[in-house]
Nucleic acid binder design. Structure first.
Lengths: 111, 111
DNA sequence: ACACGGCTTCACCAGTTCTTCACCAGCTCG
DNA sequence: CGAGCTGGTGAAGAACTGGTGAAGCCGTGT
């Protein structure tokens, strides 16, 4: 991921601290330990808080090109990000599924 | 490395004493004996404690220019710094790897 | 010319991450 | 309710990244 100045600004969302320049996400001070790909997914959704982003858009943003029918790459990546966030921030959910459409980022307590 | 006034201040981090003006690092009073290049790497990371610094940034800071794909210079230099620090401060780790991203300086006891 | 120290590059290996597949669960609509 | 999709999930092999030891190069001093 390119480090453009616009991405350097640190974001504070709910209990998360997002450092684009470091490709790091911290939940309550704990590192999520996302990989580069995972961070890209997380970040593109986090930039659009509360917006439902369609699968093909996500695919293009991360892999470029067009998403093929029944390509599961996005789903698998979402799963991994969810899992890592769950580890550092149990009791929170961040990525919500919109059936047949895509995903939406929005931090919510669940406990 | 240019010795600018801003870099003259002695840093105390964990069991380390860093003297930018002398390009020296001491661990519990023992000199690490870093070379100039090695000190540059060490210092640029130490200045940003707890921040993940991306490989290309490190490269540019030390060698200037752009890092080519699969250029291993940074890795090798990190290895040498780690080795010398290990000699004077066994039981400590300072430079942590962030896979696919870069390195982060943060003194930690390991023993 | 030679020895030496430091820097760069290379090759091999280990560990991590990515991609894809298969199977299952949940949702939608007739 | 049942068929057909869509998404969740775990796993395996491929692909990639970083750790490491060593050889080669270069400049300096002997």
């Amino acid at each position: 991921m390119t480090v453009s100045p616009a991405r350097q600004r640190i974001l504070q969302i709910a209990n998360l601290e997002v450092r684009p320049g470091e490709l790091q996400v911290l939940a309550d001070g704990k590192r999520a330990g996302l990989t580069v790909r995972e961070f890209e997914l997380f970040f593109m959704l986090a930039e659009r808080v509360d917006s439902v982003v369609q699968r093909p858009q996500i695919y293009t943003a991360i892999w470029g090109g067009t998403m093929q029918r029944r390509d599961r790459s996005v789903d698998v990546l979402v799963r991994k990000v969810r899992a890592k966030l769950e580890l550092v921030a149990p009791g929170w959910t961040y990525i919500h599924t919109h059936f047949g459409i895509g995903y939406r980022f929005s931090p919510e307590r669940v406990t």
